[in-house]
Nucleic acid binder design. Structure first.
Length: 566
RNA sequence: GCCCCCGUAGCCCAAUGGAUAGGGCACUAGCCUCCGGAGCUAGUGGUGCAGGUUCAAUUCCUGCCGGGGGCACCA
């Protein structure tokens, strides 16, 4: 709906510009401006529902001042929209400021939108942006060597919300977790558990510093130790068999823990992609062979290198170490080739900030595979710093002590934590105030938004008690400024969703929902929904139920509940 | 040393290159015979520094200053 209105307005504007700017059709710059024509939604409502800065750009080409250019365009635009009659959206257009063209929409546009939402609910809010294109969103992908940290928590919150945003924008999204279930870290995990197991058996062991120190390692060892049948079986294993057993068992058990943590957080995945399986499939070798044939692989200093400098990386990267084992890069290239082979045209990866240096070589790999660098988008999810009463919570990873997703969840709950992790741009640092997140007051944004939803639910419920007539509402009764503000805020939902999908960042929704809630609360304060005037009541209930649909939809996308009562 | 993020009011943050730089907290003064006061209204107060691009810079480019994070034949 929003898109349709915007599109029609743009073509109307183009037509107006073309017929009012004769004399410069030959200039390529003219077409550059015409083709990059955009509408913006002004911050100030006195500047209209949409505004356009074309006159400012065209002025120097025309050698005229921007205001008169804008005036010419506006007069044509008014004439054209008169010809279109009832089909036109434009109520009025005027020139303001340096030469902005401000367009005011007919109320009918808003009424149509209200009808649409009340008829088809969340369906009305979907966009056709993606056209059903298949997108693979890979996120979290933490090694199964311990509980998820706060950093993973933010990645999970962002990834899940982004997947929802893209789905609502019309993409076919697959959520995937890349599981590093073999390699050095897993071996260390296995040895860590084995050593604790030996300790329980009464052996004195030296526990290396680079091994996993957390108490959960001892817990896992104790689980095995306490199972007498299993203990006996383990004790009969050879040394290599023990190593393999403890690694596999540890990774398995910790993956269960991670899955449970994600489930409690409300985040689910469609695919758990195993690195071990990838290794077994022979795809790493075939991918490297493939790149070798293309001339992007060479040997030097006993190692095998990927010529990533060919694609703009700082230096070439090792894919196979001199000891014969692969670096992380080798399976990763194969993994991304596999993603493409599975039919995904667009790959999106959410990585932690420690991986940002890794982007150029991964992009290089994508290009070496014969794809476009744009086919892979990497989003760096910056760290969240937890604060308690204004003091940062220490997040040392030494001795395996770090703040976990589970702890945050236990302290502030799912709704507040999901919302808070999304309140800043994904690639910006985030200060997460635990005390604020726990507060059940208007200071806490998530309560502010949920309260609006609960309040509307309450009004609608008491309206049902009073049995208002259910005739088609007469929306033309909605004439108060607060009502128009609210209709416009409702109208902007799709615009917000569009921007989030385009920027691959769901954080804008947290902003928008606070804005929509604010406009609603102001309307509520000024006007009674349930008035003696039954027709007016009907129209206002219609209005706020549209707000309710959008709040619920927006919160659902963010992974936050929308309670009927609080 | 190199790379990423950030410098906006006492504090936390907004602002697809646009108009008078918005909101929240705190502070001050108001609003409950009334649909949920977990709400609303009003007031005080601001772009780190120096250049550049532009009709227009908080936004883009260069340099500097300050804060946070990261650099591997680890994953």
């Amino acid at each position: 709906m929003f898109q349709r209105v915007e599109k029609q307005l743009l073509s109307l504007l183009k037509e107006s510009i073309e017929s009012s700017c004769c004399g410069i059709f030959q200039q390529p710059a003219f077409y550059d401006i015409l083709n990059s024509l955009t509408l913006e939604v002004p911050k100030e409502k006195e500047f209209g529902d949409f505004s356009c800065n074309a006159a400012l750009q065209l002025a120097s080409l025309l050698h005229k001042n921007p205001k008169s250019v804008a005036q010419d365009i506006v007069s044509v635009l008014k004439k054209l929209s008169l010809q279109h009659g009832g089909d036109a959206f434009v109520k009025d257009a005027e020139v303001k400021g340096a030469g902005f063209i401000n367009i005011f929409l007919k109320e009918k546009v808003f009424f149509d939108y209200l009808n649409l939402i009340n008829d088809s609910r969340e369906q009305a809010l979907k966009l056709g942006l993606g056209g059903g294109a298949r997108v693979l969103l890979e996120f979290v992908s933490a090694n199964p060597t311990g509980s998820l940290s706060v950093a993973h928590a933010r990645q999970a919150a962002v990834g899940d919300a982004l997947a929802n945003v893209l789905a609502a924008a019309g993409y076919d999204v697959t959520r995937e977790y890349y599981l590093n279930d073999e390699g050095n870290q897993i071996n260390i995990l296995g040895r860590s558990i084995l050593l604790r197991f030996k300790e329980l058996s009464g052996e004195t062991v030296e526990f290396p510093e680079d091994h996993y120190q957390g108490a959960y390692i001892t817990d896992l060892a104790r689980e095995l130790f306490d199972d007498k049948v299993l203990r006996l079986k383990i004790e009969n294993f050879s040394a290599p068999e023990k190593e393999i057993f403890f690694s596999e068992h540890g990774a398995h058990r910790i993956l269960d823990i991670i899955k449970k943590e994600l489930d409690d957080f409300g985040v689910s995945f469609d695919v758990w992609f195993s690195q071990k399986e990838l290794g077994k499939s022979g795809k790493i070798e075939s991918t490297l062979d493939n790149l070798k044939k293309k001339g992007f692989i060479y040997e030097a200093d006993g190692a095998v290198w990927f010529k990533s400098t060919e694609f703009g990386d700082d230096k070439d990267r090792v894919v196979r170490k001199s000891d014969g084992s692969y670096t992380y890069l080798a399976p990763d290239i194969a993994y991304h080739e596999d993603k493409f082979r599975r039919g995904f045209k667009r790959l999106i990866n959410l990585w932690g900030p420690d991986h940002h240096g890794y982007i150029p070589r991964m992009k290089a790999a994508v290009r070496a595979l014969g794809r476009d660098a744009q086919d892979l988008s990497v989003i760096i999810v910056q760290l969240a710093t937890l604060f308690r009463k204004g003091v940062p919570v220490p997040m040392s990873t030494r001795k395996g002590q770090y703040v976990t997703l589970r702890e945050v969840l236990a302290e502030v709950g799912r709704d507040a934590s999901r919302f808070f992790f999304l309140m800043r741009k994904t690639d910006s640092h985030l200060d997460f105030d635990l005390e604020l997140a726990k507060k059940q007051t208007s200071e806490n944004p998530v309560y502010y938004v949920q309260y609006a939803h609960a309040r509307i639910s309450s009004i609608l419920a008491s309206a049902q008690d009073k049995k208002f007539d259910s005739k088609e509402p007469d929306l033309s009764l909605l004439k108060e400024p607060e009502e128009r503000d609210l209709m416009k805020a409702i109208f902007e939902f799709s615009y917000c969703l569009f921007v989030c999908a385009k920027q691959l960042d769901p954080y804008g929704l947290t902003m928008y929902l606070q804005y929509l809630s604010g406009v609603f609360h102001r309307f509520y304060d000024k006007h009674k929904c349930l008035s003696p005037d039954g027709r007016l009541t009907q129209a206002r209930l219609y209005l706020i139920s549209a707000v309710k649909v959008e709040l619920a939809c927006g919160l659902r996308i963010l992974g936050v509940s929308s309670p009927e009562r609080m």
